[in-house]
Nucleic acid binder design. Structure first.
Length: 143
DNA sequence: GCCAACGTTGGC
DNA sequence: GCCAACGTTGGC
């Protein structure tokens, strides 16, 4: 069981859109970065990920679950890129902003703060728990 | 809208 | 295989 963080520009794909796809979820397509790809290849069914909005919001807004492991990205004609499928689990009652992450002693070394350009990144259990709490969840979701 | 940081590409 | 140039991302 691993934890991740996936970033999206809400204008192109938002957590609200993700929620509308319900339990069947959607492909996390369009990733064209080797590091992000290798992170997606390491994902297993049932892993959980934060859904982060870039741009205006710059905040973790929800949680998604990996429902299909890495497979061909249907939007890639060259066939070299892959994606996973994710489904919304729940939104955070209170979004956790990038500013808060950077200000928090235990979170400021997160990849999110250090390398904001990596679109799919691992999150430690400790980071996961802290952000869930800051986000207003009584307890982190179960798989 | 600008700029810094990073990743990727291509020439040597 | 190295490195400069370029393009893109994302924060400010």
């Amino acid at each position: 069981m691993a934890y991740w963080l996936m970033k999206s520009e809400p204008d192109s794909w938002s957590f609200d859109q993700q929620k509308k796809t319900g339990r069947k979820g959607a492909e996390w397509d369009g990733v064209r970065n080797f590091q992000a790809r290798s992170n997606m290849k390491a994902m297993r069914r049932g892993d959980l990920a934060f859904f982060y909005h870039t741009g205006e919001e710059k905040a973790v807004v929800g949680i998604v679950k990996v429902i299909a492991e890495a497979h061909q990205d249907s939007t890639d004609p060259t066939g070299q890129w892959q994606c996973v499928d994710v489904a919304a689990v729940e939104g955070l009652p209170r979004p956790v902003t990038l500013a808060e992450v950077k200000a928090h002693a235990k979170l400021k070394d997160m990849k999110l703060a250090r390398n904001p350009r990596l679109s799919v990144q691992p999150v430690t259990l400790q980071e996961w728990a802290i952000i869930c709490k800051l986000g207003g969840l009584a307890k982190p979701p179960e798989t």
